[in-house]
Amino acid sequence: AEDTGLRVELAEEDGCSNSSLALRLWVEDPKKLKGKHKDNEAIEFSFNLEADTPEEVAYEMVKSGFFHESDSKAVAKSIRDRVTLIKKIREKKPAGC
């Protein structure tokens, strides 16, 4: 996926038992972001695969002052790429991981 300068990873082992994930996002390459942000802080949040959208979470992060509006697309894309990967892995694993 195109490198947004942001890294998103699972904050906890994916138990696959429900649609909720614990994710962690932080800035890996500050030069790739346009607006103001905090470099060495990781933001942990829950993401519900059925109810949430990456855009909505990115919007909340911008509203909370973690990122500038101009970076919300990059934040959403980073979350979307990771969630898509997790869904693919879940599909490949036997039921219940």
Partner: peptide, 27 residues
Amino acid sequence: SSLTQVVHSAGRRFIVSPVPESRLRES
């Protein structure tokens, strides 16, 4: 810990903590 901060926005909880040193070196 004092380094962790919890922020709520529209019912969503964000837990902010320092990026582990090891992860910073990785990038």
